[in-house]
Every structure is written in structure tokens, then in C-alpha cells.
Design a protein around this nucleic acid. Structure first.
Length: 623
RNA sequence: GGAGUCUUAGCUCAAUUGGUUAGAGCGCCGCCCUGUCACGGCGGAGGUUGCGGGUUCGAGCCCCGUAGACUCCGCCA
């Protein structure tokens, strides 16, 4: 390292104390010390280090210039150490310190000293000591920043445009560190269990099912395209056919759909697949993994096994396939109470084979008319004709519908829903799936309006099991896979496929839900070619398409593929929960905004026509 | 594709019913200050109120359009 540290013209801000070239090095030569940029991090020094000579490097966090003595909070990713510049001891160094500005990068050498009596800072881990600087090298001056690093900033555009500055903020650095620790823990748990981490192609093949693909044109095969993987699904199953038995990958996945606060076009999954296992093996493995992850991230011991609930029960009780079980309010069926009702709305729903269900939003009678309208609008958006309600206020039931109820019905309702003063009861009367969805959404909004908060460390894990295999798509007028086309029907339900009772077939599929957020999902797969072919047929994938799109998989299944299954965990969402972040963008180093634009580099961008020509691509966009 | 909210100084925000020269804190610049840690004091610079149009004697504020950001719906096997 021949680069001078402040002596040459290339470092005009370098100032040294004492006679030119003189260094106090405790016997070490300047050259040997020059090999080391710093002796400690900014979080390392304690009272035990008092008297030793140290060198730190970092950013000027804040500068408190008293005209004479100057204090600088020197920050690196580990922490902060106070540096004091004393003109009476090192005048040239103190003079240089007057010129420091926020975020200048400096290297400081000096002696660790106990802070003066009464000036210790208990907020800093290093707050008992300070460094009395006798040498400073300004490694790089910083211009005035576009936004302050020491306060909450609302303008996310600005943060993303200058992400390298945003990530200097301790809260963001802490998220990056947390993410690293979580991924490291996942790797360690899987490695200890005999898993092999195997990379699969990023340039892969488009398949008809699922989300919209990102496409990559192939120069060597004009007119052909790779697709970026939505998940390494087929490759990992083929690795099972290859006898790998235990595979995992911290896999980047790509889906070209609209973004959300918890959704990015590229995201990371902990992708796992195993052979010769049942769902129980997956549950046990993942529970073990979460124990390790939460121990590492939060230092807590979580309880296992996690509760389980069937999809059907989740929909009936919570109106969601990812129920937030932290909230007590549940949906209750009241169809039997109104079996003889004359109230047209309920009568019609029941006679039409639908259901009448209710949700008691405890304490929400204070709801405003505007909020009732909002809930009603929400109900209509999800297919209901309206949203009936009873406000229980001042000892009476205020409601446009209660006049249609008999005394017996009212009494039964009161008991079934434990209705008390201050409650708001909301009704859904319609097709079962609509009522579930509507009351499920209303339930979450009611909780929001009530402002119910929980211990931020509360963790309600839940396995949701027995998902339906298929769902009818009105839009496409065909059956689609609820999970994906490779999911295994439950053994007892395979016969239902032949009977054309597609809606009743349950899958060997499971999701893991934490506090109402789906953080992972998986299934036991089909490993027999004939069953897989039948599944494709049900999904409307013809034989020709099966051969061209999935021939490799079907063939592999004919050459001795073992029974297998797996799961994928959404790492971004998991880290988001662990970090208590409100946006997935806060746990990704360089995320994309709502429109899929990465603001710092301004990608995506137009490309030169020659690049397109090489790829045999022409844009149809009108200029 | 649809709905909602937002856009005022570098940053965070204010500006009564439409009414004088659009303010404050932080930051920035200058001067002063030897124990601060949100250091302090004095002074100063900094604005096409996103953009375009309209209503009005007068628009940051009202209306229309447009751009951008965020949140949600659709979408996301």
C-alpha cells in the first residue's frame, strides 16, 4: 500500500500533528501501520481501552464546534465514537477539525481517554470514553446531503434515488444486517439437516400457468425467449428425480405483476424440496427453522408445534386463507337462528343455498356513518349486495333491519354473538364464499378502525392445510390450480377427480401464516406421470402442450422419480415482519418503486436500436 | 385497467372564509464561542406553491386537465 495517507498532494486535507512525518506508533514503523486502515470499529472502545492509541475510520455523524474544542461523532456501520480535538494539544489537527462537515469520511488517530467527570454519554455504548485526536486524514469530503440522515424522512423517492445514503442510516443498516443473519440461519439449519444448496437457471422457460413472465430474448435463437423463473419449481422437482433428496436455494424469483407494499417484481424465497417425506416432515423442519431464526433475530424462544387449521375452517371462522388469529373476533354462522325468518335478504340467501353469518365487532358501535359506508362499499366491492348491521348503543339496538327480527331471533343472536352495549354486529347473507370473503375483509378493517394494537413481539403462527386443489375461473371458464399444477391431490380425494367433482378435491398443500401474513407455502407433489398428465388435462393443458411444455417432467416421472414435496418461504416478507418494517422496500437494498422503477440507476431504460436489432426485437410502442 | 390520498424552501411541515411582501423548525453560508453530544449566540441566503389551463378584482387554497409518489382493488399458479 504505497498510497500516502495524507502526506501526498493526492490527499490535500491530510494533517498530521507534530513535526512532519512524526508518528507515535508505540514502536511500530509507519509502514507497518499504514497497512492497517483502522485498529477498531466505532463501537469497540470501552473504559478498558483507556490509554491505548487507536485509529478509527468512518463518517462525520455530527460536529459540535465550540470555537476552540471540537467534538465529532465518528460513525461506522457498527456504532459511534466521540472524537475530541483540542487546540491546546494539537493545534493543526484541531484547525482541520473546524473544516469538517457532515458525512465527510475521515481517519482519526489518537489516545483513548476517559471522558471528563459528568460528560459521559449513557446513550452510546462507547459513551464512557473519547478519542483525543492527534492526527486526522480526510479521506473524502462530502457535499451537503439532499436529505438528513438522522431523522425520519417521508420522501421515499429521494431516499431511493440516493439509496447509498439512505442505507447509511442506522435503521436501514440494521435491516440489512438482520436480513443477513436470517439468511445465514436458514442456511445453517438446512446444512445441518443434510440439505444441498443448488443453483438453478435464471434464464429458464416460460410456462402457461401462473403469473406473467419476465422474458429475455435469445440472440442465438432468434424469435425465442427465456423466461425468468417465477420460482425454481420444476427444476427442484427434477433434482428430486435426480436423487438429490434434500435441496434448497436462496432463490430469486420474478413475477411481472403489479407491485404492492409487500410485493416486488423480484423477490427472494428460501426454496426447499425433499424426497421420501410427508407434510409432517416439512412442518417439523420449518418449525425448527423458525425457532432458530427467531432465536437469532429476536433472542426469543417460540413455541412449537404451530397450530393448524384447515382452509375450510380458516375461511369459515376468519374469512381468509391467511387468518390473523391475533384478533378474537370471529365470523359466526347464524343461519339456523334465522331458519324461519321473513326478512327478505336473509330469506333469499338461505333459500338460494347461501348462508347468513355475522361478526361482532366488539366496541365498534362508536363507528361513524362514513365508516359504515366505507365498510358497505368494501362489501359491495367483494360481491355482496350490502352490509347489514346492528349498533348496540344506549341500551338499544339501532339498525335498519332489526325490525324484521322476532324476539326469539334477537335473543338467540344476543347469546350466540355475546352482544353487549357498545358492540357493532355486521351481517353477511349471500353465497358462502362471498360472505366469507366480505366478512373477512370487514373484520380486518374493523380491527383497524378500533385501533387495536398488540405487543409488537406477539407471534401467531399457523399452518393452513387442506387447500382445495382447483378453483373455477369465471374469467377463463376453466379450472385453475389453487397452488400449482404439480400439487398432489389428497389420496382420498383422487377419485373425486374422476367424478368431475373438482371443487371438492383437496390438495396436499399447506401455507404458513404469521400474524395474518402468508410467509410460505408448499405441497407434496405428484411424482407419477399418469396422475400428472391427468392433472394437466383437468387444467386444460392438451396433450401436445403437455409434451412441449412439460415433457421433460413427465418423462422424468417415468424414470423412477421418488415421492417428494417441499415449501418456499418468502424471505422478504419474513424479514419485513422481523424488522417491523412497513414496506418490503425497507428490507431490500435496492428495491423498485410502485412502477417497477429502480430510481437510483433509473432502470428500466430505453436501449439502443442496435441492441434490439441484434436480438431481433422491435417495439410496438407508439412513440 | 380502476379507486383513494398526497405534491408549498435542500428536509419536515404551516399559511383562518379566496385577500398585503407565502412562514416556522432543521439544514446550508458567514461571524462569534474551549466540554458538547438535538451544543449555544448573532446575522444571511434560499420559493415559477409539481406542471398546464380556467373561474375571480384577487388563487397555495375553488374547478378542469396532466405528471409523479404512496396505499388499495383487479392481478400475483
Amino acid at each position: 500500500m504505497a498510497t500516502a495517507e495524507g502526506q501526498g498532494p493526492e490527499n490535500p486535507h491530510g494533517i498530521r500533528a507534530g513535526p512532519s512525518g512524526a508518528c507515535r506508533l508505540g514502536g511500530k514503523s509507519p509502514d507497518s501501520r499504514a497497512m492497517k486502515f483502522r485498529t477498531h470499529t466505532c463501537a469497540a472502545l470501552r473504559a478498558g481501552d483507556i490509554g491505548s492509541r487507536v485509529t478509527l475510520a468512518g463518517w462525520v455523524g455530527s460536529r459540535r464546534d465550540h470555537g476552540g474544542v471540537v467534538f465529532v461523532d465518528l460513525r461506522d456501520r457498527e456504532g459511534i465514537t466521540q472524537v475530541v480535538f483540542r487546540p491546546e494539544e494539537h493545534p493543526a489537527v484541531a484547525e482541520a477539525a473546524h473544516g469538517l462537515r457532515d458525512e465527510d469520511v475521515i481517519k482519526v488517530s489518537g489516545t483513548v481517554a476517559r471522558r471528563l467527570e459528568g460528560t459521559e454519554n449513557s446513550k452510546l455504548a462507547t459513551g464512557d470514553v473519547e478519542i483525543v485526536a492527534d492526527e486526522i486524514v480526510v479521506l473524502n469530503k462530502a457535499e451537503v446531503l439532499p436529505f438528513p440522515l438522522d431523522e425520519q424522512i417521508a420522501n421515499e423517492d429521494l431516499r431511493l434515488t440516493h439509496r447509498y445514503l439512505d442505507l447509511r442510516r442506522p435503521a436501514m443498516a440494521s435491516n440489512l444486517r438482520l436480513r443477513h443473519r436470517v439468511i445465514k440461519t436458514v442456511r445453517d439449519v438446512l446444512d445441518a439437516d443434510g440439505f444441498w444448496e443448488i443453483e438453478t437457471p435464471i434464464l429458464s422457460k416460460s410456462t402457461p400457468e401462473g403469473a406473467r413472465d419476465f422474458l429475455v430474448p435469445s440472440r442465438l435463437n432468434p424469435g425465442s425467449f427465456y423466461a425468468l423463473p417465477q420460482a425454481p419449481q420444476q427444476y427442484k422437482q427434477l433434482l428430486m428425480a435426480a436423487g438429490v433428496e434434500k435441496y434448497f436455494q436462496i432463490a430469486r424469483c420474478f413475477r411481472d405483476e403489479d407491485l404492492r407494499a409487500d410485493r416486488q417484481p423480484e423477490f427472494t424465497q428460501a426454496d426447499i424440496e425433499m424426497s421420501f417425506i410427508t407434510a409432517e416432515d416439512i412442518f417439523a423442519l420449518i418449525e425448527r427453522m423458525f425457532v432458530a431464526v427467531f432465536r437469532e433475530a429476536w433472542g426469543v424462544e417460540i413455541a412449537t408445534p404451530f397450530p393448524r387449521m384447515t382452509y375450510r375452517e380458516a375461511m369459515d371462522r376468519f374469512g381468509s386463507d391467511k387468518p390473523d388469529t391475533r384478533y378474537a373476533q370471529e365470523i359466526v354462522d347464524v343461519g339456523d337462528i334465522f331458519a324461519g325468518t321473513e326478512f327478505k335478504v336473509f330469506r333469499g340467501a338461505l333459500d338460494g343455498g347461501g348462508v347468513v353469518r355475522a361478526l361482532n365487532a366488539k366496541g365498534l358501535a362508536k363507528i361513524t356513518t362514513g365508516q359504515i359506508e366505507e365498510l358497505t362499499g368494501m362489501a359491495k366491492q367483494f360481491g355482496a349486495k350490502g352490509l347489514a348491521f346492528i349498533k348496540c348503543e344506549n341500551g338499544e339496538w339501532k339498525s335498519p333491519i332489526v325490525k324484521f327480527f322476532t324476539e326469539a331471533e334477537k335473543a338467540a343472536l344476543r347469546e350466540r354473538l355475546s352482544i353487549e352495549e357498545g358492540d357493532l354486529v355486521l351481517f353477511g347473507a349471500d353465497r358462502r364464499d362471498i360472505v366469507c370473503e366480505v366478512l373477512g375483509r370487514v373484520r380486518l378493517r374493523a380491527v383497524e378502525i378500533l385501533g387495536i394494537t398488540h405487543d409488537p413481539r406477539r407471534l401467531d403462527f399457523l399452518w393452513v392445510v387442506d387447500f382445495p386443489l382447483l378453483a373455477w375461473s369465471e374469467e377463463e371458464q376453466k379450472w385453475n390450480a389453487v397452488h400449482h399444477p404439480f400439487t398432489r391431490p389428497k389420496a382420498g380425494d383422487v377419485a373425486l377427480l374422476d367424478e368431475e367433482r373438482h371443487a371438492d378435491v383437496r390438495a396436499e398443500a399447506y401455507d404458513i401464516v404469521l400474524n395474518g401474513v402468508e410467509i410460505g407455502g408448499g405441497s407434496i407433489r405428484i411424482h407419477e406421470a399418469d396422475l400428472q398428465a391427468k392433472m394437466f388435462s383437468v387444467l386444460g393443458v392438451g396433450e401436445d402442450q403437455q409434451a412441449s411444455m412439460f415433457g421433460h417432467l413427465l418423462k422424468a416421472f417415468r424414470f423412477g422419480a421418488p415421492p417428494h414435496g417441499g415449501i418456499a418461504l418468502g424471505l422478504d416478507r419474513l424479514v419485513m415482519l422481523l424488522a417491523h418494517a412497513e414496506s418490503i422496500r425497507d428490507v431490500i437494498a435496492f428495491p423498485k418503486n410502485n412502477r417497477g422503477v429502480e430510481l437510483m440507476t433509473a432502470s428500466p431504460s430505453a436501449v439502443d436500436f442496435r441492441q434490439l436489432r441484434e436480438l431481433y426485437i422491435a417495439s410496438t410502442k407508439k412513440a
